[in-house]
Computed example of a mutant assay.
Amino acid sequence: MKHNLIRNAWLPLLLLLAGIAACSSSTQIMGSWKSPEIEAQNYQRVVVAALTDNVLARQEVENDLQAQLQMRGIQATRSIDLFPPSATAKTGPDVNLLIERIKENGHDAILTAALVDEQTETRYVPGNMGYRPMSRFVWYGSFRGYYNFWYPTLYDPGYYTEDKVYYLETNLYDVNTDRLVWSAQSKSHSPRSLRKAASQFAELTVQKMAEDNVLPAVVRQ
């Protein structure tokens, strides 16, 4: 039940991936892991798969991961093109059929992205209290005028607001061995724009893969 709720949260997550009102959004890589059993890999054909049943979120994430990989000269295929969503299917495609289809198309790696957790953080937004001088003391003529001018100016109370924090995991699997070769965890605060958030997430993820010597470090023009 919890996993279903998490999967369904991808849209606000990725409406996630940018900030509520006065809160600025951010996506950052928290950490990564690379299998000690492998050296630098030269993956050339990668399937990108966003593990969610939300079609819009799946399209956005896979589109941007595909674009970032292609910038590095890697042929990337979206899983949504290999296995389009079905209105009648209540479960995903059989994993053995999925791997067989991926191998048939000559792919050598699978890059997955999944929302693994979400949390709510409460923060205090301070109010605005201060002196604002004027050139003319027109409000001093009466107590009513003075009070009505200064009270709303001096007293602007703070308030508490809640921010959503989303945690994502990205894994790279070798198709031939079916083994995990690289993994990274990231988080995103209070997203406002699906388009911006998905793009930032993809850029940071592929950049980290290059830094960890899993993908080519040079972006091909």
Score class of each variant (00 low, 15 high):
residue 97 L to P: 02
residue 84 P to G: 09
residue 33 W to F: 05
residue 21 A to T: 06
residue 10 W to P: 00
residue 14 L to E: 02
residue 87 A to W: 12
residue 49 A to N: 15
residue 11 L to G: 02
residue 76 A to G: 08
residue 97 L to G: 14
residue 26 S to N: 15
residue 25 S to Y: 13
residue 8 N to E: 05
residue 100 E to P: 00
residue 59 Q to M: 09
residue 30 M to P: 00
residue 53 D to V: 01
residue 99 I to N: 09
residue 58 R to Y: 01
residue 101 R to G: 03
residue 33 W to P: 05
residue 82 L to H: 03
residue 89 A to G: 02
residue 30 M to I: 08
residue 77 T to V: 08
residue 100 E to A: 11
residue 70 Q to L: 08
residue 18 A to W: 09
residue 32 S to D: 07
residue 19 G to R: 12
residue 46 V to C: 01
residue 27 T to G: 04
residue 76 A to P: 08
residue 25 S to T: 14
residue 32 S to T: 11
residue 19 G to Q: 14
residue 55 V to E: 04
residue 89 A to S: 10
residue 24 S to Y: 12
residue 10 W to H: 01
residue 80 I to A: 08
residue 93 P to A: 14
residue 34 K to A: 14
residue 77 T to E: 09
residue 61 V to P: 01
residue 57 A to M: 02
residue 13 L to D: 03
residue 51 L to M: 11
residue 79 S to Q: 07
residue 70 Q to C: 04
residue 58 R to S: 08
residue 64 D to W: 05
residue 14 L to N: 02
residue 30 M to Y: 02
residue 19 G to W: 14
residue 10 W to Q: 00
residue 84 P to V: 09
residue 73 G to P: 13
residue 30 M to A: 06
residue 52 T to F: 05
residue 47 V to G: 07
residue 44 Q to T: 14
residue 65 L to E: 04
residue 19 G to F: 15
residue 99 I to V: 10
residue 48 V to C: 12
residue 44 Q to I: 09
residue 13 L to N: 02
residue 73 G to C: 15
residue 20 I to L: 11
residue 37 E to D: 13
residue 24 S to P: 06
residue 18 A to R: 09
residue 94 D to Q: 09
residue 21 A to N: 10
residue 64 D to Q: 10
residue 43 Y to V: 08
residue 72 R to F: 05
residue 83 F to D: 11
residue 39 E to R: 14
residue 11 L to D: 03
residue 86 S to M: 04
residue 59 Q to P: 00
residue 15 L to Y: 09
residue 32 S to Q: 07
residue 76 A to N: 09
residue 25 S to W: 13
residue 64 D to I: 00
residue 20 I to Y: 11
residue 66 Q to Y: 12
residue 41 Q to G: 07
residue 60 E to C: 05
residue 25 S to D: 14
residue 92 G to S: 13
residue 48 V to P: 07
residue 80 I to G: 03
residue 68 Q to C: 06
residue 37 E to L: 13
residue 61 V to E: 01
residue 88 T to R: 10
residue 99 I to Y: 14
residue 89 A to M: 02
residue 81 D to M: 10
residue 57 A to G: 09
residue 77 T to P: 00
residue 6 I to C: 06
residue 82 L to Q: 03
residue 81 D to T: 11
residue 89 A to K: 03
residue 77 T to I: 06
residue 29 I to T: 13
residue 33 W to N: 06
residue 21 A to L: 07
residue 79 S to R: 03
residue 12 P to I: 11
residue 6 I to G: 05
residue 20 I to F: 10
residue 62 E to T: 04
residue 37 E to R: 13
residue 81 D to K: 10
residue 17 L to F: 10
residue 99 I to D: 10
residue 10 W to C: 03
residue 72 R to S: 04
residue 5 L to P: 00
residue 75 Q to G: 03
residue 92 G to L: 13
residue 76 A to Y: 06
residue 45 R to F: 13
residue 47 V to I: 13
residue 39 E to K: 15
residue 6 I to E: 10
residue 5 L to E: 00
residue 27 T to W: 00
residue 45 R to E: 13
residue 84 P to K: 05
residue 16 L to V: 04
residue 57 A to S: 15
residue 18 A to Q: 12
residue 20 I to V: 11
residue 20 I to G: 09
residue 86 S to A: 06
residue 57 A to D: 01
